[in-house]
């Protein structure tokens, strides 16, 4: 299954929940926010949210800025 993760092509072996992807990326427990196809997926739904082929996923965090 192929998705676009933060603008880059990313291959997932089989069906995944959003939380499984976050765990796989080593980002579990980090303060972040996720959008799939330009819609926010609230943290409370990460465990149940099933990713689809072709999904555009954005995972963001806070960095220094003015």
């Amino acid at each position: 299954m192929n998705v676009l993760l933060n603008g880059e092509p990313h291959t997932l072996s089989g069906s995944r929940t959003l939380q499984a992807l976050i765990d796989e990326l080593g980002l579990a427990g980090k303060r972040l926010a996720v959008e799939v196809n330009e819609d926010i997926v609230p943290r409370s739904q990460h465990h149940d949210y099933r990713l689809q082929d072709g999904d555009r996923i954005e995972i963001v965090h806070a960095i220094g800025g003015g």
């Binding site: 603008g7 990326l25 980090k30 995972i59 963001v60 806070a62 220094g64 800025g65």
Partner: peptide, 16 residues
């Protein structure tokens, strides 16, 4: 603060 993409696959231990 600014909101930007998380670096995928790099230094996930870096302090936030």
């Amino acid at each position: 603060v600014a909101v930007r993409r998380t670096n995928i696959g790099q230094n996930t231990d870096e302090p936030n």
